[in-house]
Design a protein around this nucleic acid. Structure first.
Lengths: 358, 358
DNA sequence: TTGAAAGCGATACCAA
DNA sequence: TTGGTATCGCTTTCAA
């Protein structure tokens, strides 16, 4: 049933070692390669990866671990990682960390050699337990999120506090000064950073009574809809209505736009809305959503590059801590009154999936 | 650096075999388990998966292979597969098949033991080469797409020709009789099936001159926008304007709605639009998109179940060919004038991602 | 219940 | 360049 290299060697009438070399083009005569390859084809030989992994001490697999692959940002990151590591012969394994720092630490601890060669991790929450798991991990791990050089952990970061500030600036630029904020849970890394960003920007440039904040249960459309409904209703009743909302990510922003519609508010005329992440879905939404890009695909790409360098036999774990930073950039779209970039962007952003199941 | 079970055994003062048994709770005294576990923790032992895989002849990994993970349908399928196989201790590896049947066959052929235990495949195109690769594969493979029982291949299918017919019926029900069709490439399995479905429905229930068809370059928003623009413009010029469009999937439908807006057409008042796949993004779009569900998550779930049964030591490859079928269902939304199901659906469909990177 | 040893399938070393 | 053999880390059989 199962054909091993031993049988191929026997059939070709050569030694096991020669068969291995012939299959891998490692110093074998042409005649030898010919004989062995022929025998392999005749027998339908397929190399067994676990035997090879055991000996070579590498699996050619890289894990991408996130809280929930359902978020489009992660899908875009996954594609970027895929494209980066595939040419080097690596496969990508998607893993779910779960919501908590503990479950993430658990995942990191159970990842052993023989499954993956390295991991790219984008944790939602971070605590000492997880940091400890990361530093004691037996393989290269690159964190996408906030910078962690002081812990000796490779990271590719952005500054989402600054990102929120850019959104506020943009709204002020278009004449909106009553700006609300819809954030996700404050005990998450992105939630905390974005909260700082908004509070800081509001203090410097807005009147606090005109800057209400509402915390959604999580970073989802549904939670954003509920939170925005609460915030908008409350603002109207309090007599200081708002004319703009900054959402902590694009999914929340979609919820905000839905809530606005339910309340009879027009976007962007009555309410300007901004998101964060610059996801594809945000750009395709109607109205298309002005969003601050955190360079997700670039960060994923860089993280994948770092991983490949760490894996490389010579580079090894020895080098110094790698840290890359990618600054946010704002992309103005219809939800803040900018011209519809749909038609033009279609020509410049081919990134959209192919294929569909039957 | 790396701790093996041998070292754990030495530290615990027991034999290698006992250490193995203790770690796996396979007939070891409590005292033994205690000693070995303690030593393992002290040394920071992590089992090496390739050693185990080599011996056990299983990797606890299942591949999910698709043309492009960027399509939201595949993401939903991935989540369903993940949820189904995780409890059984299996990880999911995402693999890209590429666009062609040949590249897919290539992938199937290079998948050997030691990497994955089974594969769930949703191929865009299917030919004899791929069928041959599937039948001669050394591991269980379940195809999500069209039924393939005559080739002895497990499959979970739907009927997307019927799905298109349902969309046409729905449009006729709401009084639209001038219906265009935006399809994807006809040499794909879904493209061919949906073409049959529309042509058949149009012949039976519509005037052919009122049923123009346009083929988009692929199943994407961008291609849908271009194709819809062509079709709508042509229909207007020919003097037989249409008042509805059936799109072959939700991504194309989004493109159609964008094209309609660019031409000053209101959806659904001037143009009703339907999609296929019932993706989350379609339901969240504005207007929300009426779509025919092909039961993607259910099919993925069933495929994963079949795979688990095939993998199970007793079931084995021996059983007869498994074939499941899930019929399409139409979900009416705003794009065909139905009431906005957004608020109510939010309570019943919690499926939306959590988390966002910093 | 425990210990000793065989063996999974591949690569890589050392002689020839 | 080729053959013979040790070895990767683990599970599992066979005796004790």
């Amino acid at each position: 049933m199962k054909v091993t290299l031993v049988e191929v060697a026997e059939r070709a009438g050569v030694s096991l070692g020669s068969a291995s070399r012939a299959m891998n083009d490692q110093g074998a005569s042409e005649a030898m390669v010919e004989r062995v390859r022929t025998a392999a084809v005749e027998l339908g030989y397929r190399p067994d990866a676990s035997g090879r992994s055991l000996r070579m001490k590498q699996t050619k697999q890289i894990a991408f671990a996130v809280a929930d692959i359902g978020n489009p940002v992660y899908v875009e990151m996954l594609s970027a990682i895929h494209e980066t590591v595939s040419p080097a012969g690596y496969r990508v394994v998607v893993m779910q960390t779960g919501q908590t720092a503990h479950s993430t630490a658990e995942l990191v601890r159970t990842m052993s050699a023989g499954i993956i060669d390295a991991m790219i991790l984008s944790p939602l929450r971070l605590d000492d337990e997880l940091l400890a798991a990361l530093t004691s991990a037996p393989m290269p791990i690159v964190v996408i999120g906030r910078p962690l050089p002081e812990h000796g952990i490779d990271s590719v970061s952005t500054d989402s506090a600054v990102a929120i500030g850019m959104a506020v600036d943009h709204l002020i630029d278009i004449g909106r000064t009553h700006i609300g904020f819809i954030n996700g849970p404050l005990d998450t890394t992105p939630g905390a950073a974005r909260q700082r960003g908004f509070v800081s920007a509001a203090q410097q440039r807005l009147a606090s009574e005109a800057s209400p904040i509402e915390i959604a249960d999580d970073f989802t459309v549904a939670a954003g809809l509920i939170a925005a409904n609460t915030l908008l209703t409350r603002a109207q009743e309090s007599g200081t209505p708002i004319n703009a909302i900054v959402a902590a990510n694009d999914l929340l922003a979609i919820g905000v736009i839905r809530a606005a519609k339910n309340l009879g508010l027009r976007v962007p005329e009555d309410l300007a809305v901004t998101g964060v992440d610059n996801t594809e879905i945000g750009g395709l939404f109607q109205p298309s959503i002005t969003s601050v890009s955190l360079g997700s695909t670039e960060r994923a790409h860089v993280a994948a590059q770092i991983v490949l360098e760490r894996i490389a036999p010579d580079a090894g774990h020895g080098g110094e801590v790698r840290q890359a930073h990618i600054g946010p950039t704002l992309v103005a779209r219809e939800s803040t009154g900018a011209a519809d970039p749909m038609l033009t962007s279609l020509n410049t952003t081919p990134r959209q999936s192919d294929g569909t199941p039957q």
